[in-house]
């Protein structure tokens, strides 16, 4: 059987807009049967905290921050789910693993798996990210 293509994402951003974009890209990759490894880096590790992920009052836009309310309202109008809902649904539909950078977690006082949302698969070091990005067919840094 033919092996699936691999996508590796270095997810640095913890902003609503970039997390949403990452979700859309991953949706395309899941439809294409790609295996996806997401490395949750510095700012994204904060967004993955249980007490932050679903709370848009604690997250901002990376660009045009003054348009946050308009952005969120527009997303709701278009029936686009929150980044966490999208990530969760894609994980159920495809083969996606979310690896939390241990150092990034510590920066945000999140040290254990139970500090993060349920879609997180493990806590790892940067070596795993470098190896997976070298072996991936597509490598993105968001």
């Amino acid at each position: 059987m033919e092996e699936n293509q691999k996508m590796c994402i270095g997810l640095f951003s913890g902003s609503i807009d970039k997390l949403t974009a990452a979700g859309i890209v991953m949706g395309g990759a899941v439809a294409d049967d790609m295996d996806i490894d997401v490395y949750v880096l510095l700012q994204a590790a904060r967004a993955f905290r249980k007490d932050v992920a679903d709370d848009y009052s604690k997250l901002e836009l990376a660009e045009n921050p003054t348009y946050k309310d308009q952005f969120v309202k527009s997303m709701e109008g278009l029936n686009i789910k929150t980044w966490l809902q999208v990530f969760r649904e894609l994980k159920a539909a495809g083969n996606i693993k979310f690896h939390i950078c241990g150092t990034a977690g510590k920066v945000w006082d999140a040290h254990k798996m139970e500090d993060f949302v349920d879609i997180a698969d493990d806590i790892c070091g940067i070596g795993a990210y470098i190896t997976d990005s070298q072996n991936a067919d597509v490598h993105l840094f968001i």
Binding site: I24, G28, V30, A31, L78, N79, I80
Partner: peptide, 14 residues
């Protein structure tokens, strides 16, 4: 029809 990209694509795949 109620979804935006990549919703229709994922619906097709499913």
């Amino acid at each position: 029809r109620g979804t935006s990209c990549p919703g229709p694509l994922l619906a097709a795949k499913k």
